[in-house]
């Protein structure tokens, strides 16, 4: 009997917990995903929240989802060392079934500030990413995965993303979170079809799927086109439910299907009701799939590393780090798309592996918006 687990992304957020409580009371939630590194502003954690984590951890149904590690930063930071320490201690306490992080590097100079942006797919970034994943695996002592990014600068990057993810996780025998709303952003923003893009992803490596909502943003550089953004602040669109139905049969090692939504978008009764209905619809799709497919549930051993991959020597690249700092500065301070484009042309990123000359105007515009939004946080 297969058993894909309908699951919730749940953090110490009162609005999110209030929306999730009916689902927990009705025993509909079979797995819990916790952004363990989002508690940095909280001095004290209520005992009842720790009890909730423990309840899922004891059943091996608790997974950790990192936000702030900044996998591809060219320079190792004290924040990353502390992040690993926190992960190690949390892993010993809660028995995570697996741990995941996001693709990209974070803009901004301070840990816990900034937005994740894409990086060039080079031997240097591959080595840094593999090194960091090995350190995460060493700290967590459980399977490690990476989530596909919603943002890309060009359609070429979109099509190479899956292959690069596969290379990154190979040394740790890792897995992928396939975020279907992130995929939806790529499909829409680059006018690519699901059938065209999905073969580029290593679907046998997908252990977790995310669904969520997002929002539309006007583009000044491409007025006829709206940009889809992964803001997690709305209900799940019909297109994403359709993607879920299409994707489930393609992922033989899938275990968790997770609904995500931010608590700040769950303050009204109407939004809580929509969240509840979205979860029930996701749950129905998953349970229907369980009832008609006979693959055994994958075990963690499927994605445990075959041998130790951890090396004491840090992989860093000063030139990459300098480019990341320069790009962050340009995006965070540009008064307009034109200003950012002009600065990029005369930056160290010009005529480099970053291929800034190929970046789509609407996506550079979005990167500016992202960097400036999160700089203020």
């Amino acid at each position: 009997m297969p058993n894909l687990l309908p699951s919730l992304a749940c953090n110490l957020d009162l609005d999110l917990l209030a929306a999730a409580l009916p689902l927990l009371e009705e025993a509909r939630v079979d797995g819990l995903e916790w952004s363990f590194d989002a508690l940095f502003q909280t001095r004290q954690v209520p005992a009842w929240f720790l009890d909730l984590l423990t309840a899922f951890g004891q059943e091996k149904r608790l997974v950790a989802h990192g936000v702030f590690f900044s996998l591809f930063s060219g320079k190792w930071s004290e924040g990353q060392r502390q992040w690993l320490k926190t992960l190690s201690e949390a892993s010993q306490r809660y028995r995570f079934d697996h741990v995941t992080e996001h693709f990209g590097f974070m803009t901004g100079q301070n840990f816990h500030h900034g937005a994740p942006l894409a990086i060039p797919y080079t031997a240097t970034t591959l080595a840094i990413g593999q090194d960091r994943l090995a350190r995460i695996q060493e700290a967590a002592q459980c399977p490690v995965g990476l989530e596909n990014l919603a943002f890309s600068y060009s359609v070429e990057d979109v099509k190479r993303h899956g292959e690069f993810l596969e290379k990154l996780i190979e040394p740790v025998n890792g897995f992928i979170i396939l975020d279907l709303h992130n995929l939806y952003c790529q499909l829409h923003n680059f006018s690519v079809s699901f059938e065209e893009l999905i073969p580029f992803y290593p679907l046998e490596r997908v252990r977790e799927i995310h669904i969520s909502g997002g929002s539309w943003e006007d583009s000044l550089t491409t007025p006829a086109k709206k940009i889809r953004r992964d803001t997690h602040d709305n209900g799940v669109p019909e297109e994403v439910f359709n993607l879920l139905t299409q994707t489930l049969p393609l992922c033989p090692n899938l275990k968790y299907v997770v609904l995500e939504q931010l608590g700040n978008s769950l303050k009204t009764e109407q939004s809580k009701t929509q969240f509840y209905q979205d979860y029930l619809r996701m749950e129905a799709i998953v349970r229907d799939f369980n009832a008609t497919h006979l693959n055994p549930i994958p075990e963690p051993e499927r994605f445990l590393p075959p041998q130790a991959t951890f090396s004491a020597e840090l992989v860093e690249d000063e030139a990459l780090y300098a480019q990341q700092v320069e790009l962050s500065s340009i995006l965070e301070t540009a008064g307009s798309y034109e200003e950012a484009q002009q600065k990029l042309r005369t930056s160290t990123l010009a005529h480099s592996a970053w291929q800034v000359e190929q970046w789509e105007p609407a996506m550079l515009e979005t990167a500016i918006s992202l960097a400036q939004k999160w700089k203020k946080k």
């Binding site: 009162l14 209030a18 409580l21 927990l24 939630v29 005992a47 009890d51 309840a55």
Partner: peptide, 18 residues
């Protein structure tokens, strides 16, 4: 998954009184 009722009650109380 069934959550212990004591945990659910504590969550409800925690949400209510913050």
């Amino acid at each position: 998954m069934n959550i212990p009722k004591s945990v659910l009650s504590a969550i409800l109380l925690g949400i209510t009184v913050q």
